[in-house]
């Protein structure tokens, strides 16, 4: 008899489980956590935005008075713009962090509820339920609660991703566009710095200028390497931003950009 009761309870629970399991389309918490971990794209972008903002400091030693005056004006513009750019980056990174937290939290564990349910079962006035049955029932309840909780969590995540997709795509596209402008401006900065070194080095043939030539060539080498590495960082960051946009769209069930 007891076995029948327990079996019935199991069946009831399994039926309930079938009702509450989320449709397969919603992303798993693991997928969302992986997406949230892609926020290093934003960190990398922010570092490059900061480098763009500080262009004047690097250029200044290579400019004459007139060029310096123009660059100073540009410096103010870049600094003003940076504030807006920092806000966009912050908004995106906060969103991704929140998403990660949402996917990590054991939001629907309901441990307390399950334990009190176990007590209630035990205190069922119609006797005939032994400890074994109570334990079995509690395990099933816990399983049910976990499934229900997971389904609930996944539903919340799916909804968040769907609602967030449009603004996220817009902001990521903006960052990508800005990055491409920073990249081109950075190339001009590089060509001014390296160009001045190159044209000046060409006229340091006199023996008295030998030391100057050697020093200038050393600076030229290190500057070439610096700009080459930042060029690579630009490429990598662009790829990361694009991967982030694609993955977000995929998990939100939208067409990737």
């Amino acid at each position: 008899m007891r076995t029948v009761q327990v079996t019935l309870l199991f069946c009831l629970c399994l039926c309930l489980c079938g009702c509450v399991v989320a449709p397969g389309a919603s992303p798993s918490t693991q997928q969302v956590r992986a997406l949230a971990a892609q926020d290093d794209a934003i960190t990398d972008f922010s570092a490059l935005a900061l480098r763009y903002r500080d262009s004047y400091e690097r250029l200044q030693p290579y400019l004459d008075t007139q060029q310096d005056a123009l660059e100073k004006r540009l410096d103010r513009q870049r600094r003003d713009m940076y504030r807006d750019v920092a806000h966009i980056s912050l908004a995106l990174s906060q969103y991704l962090q929140a998403l990660g937290q949402l996917a990590r939290q054991d939001r629907h564990a309901m441990t307390a509820e399950i334990n009190s349910a176990g007590v209630a079962i035990r205190a069922w006035p119609d006797a005939g339920i032994n400890d074994e049955a109570v334990t079995a029932a509690t395990i099933v309840l816990r399983l049910l609660a976990r499934l229900q909780g997971e389904a609930g969590q996944r539903a919340v995540l799916a909804q968040t991703l769907q609602e967030g997709n449009l603004p996220v795509q817009t902001l990521l596209a903006t960052l990508t566009h800005l990055l491409s402008l920073y990249d081109r401006a950075g190339d001009n900065e590089r060509d001014i710095v390296l160009g001045l070194l190159e044209t000046d080095i060409a006229f340091t043939e006199a023996p008295a200028q030998r030391l100057l030539a050697v020093l200038a060539k050393t600076v030229q080498q290190s500057k070439k390497e610096e700009y080459r590495l930042y060029g690579l960082r630009h490429t990598l960051t662009r790829q990361k931003l694009s991967a982030l946009a694609r993955q977000h769209a995929l998990l939100s069930g939208m067409e990737p950009p």
Binding site: S55, L63, D64, Q67, L70, E71, L74, Q77, R78, D80, M81, L178, L181, Y182, R184, A185, N188, E189, D191, I192, G195, L196, T199
Partner: peptide, 21 residues
């Protein structure tokens, strides 16, 4: 000539800043 080149690049960067901002 190099000063002209620098001026062209600075102007380009001013335009990029304009496009960005």
């Amino acid at each position: 000539i190099f000063a002209l080149e620098v001026a062209l690049r600075q102007q380009a960067n001013t335009l990029y800043a304009r496009a960005a901002g």
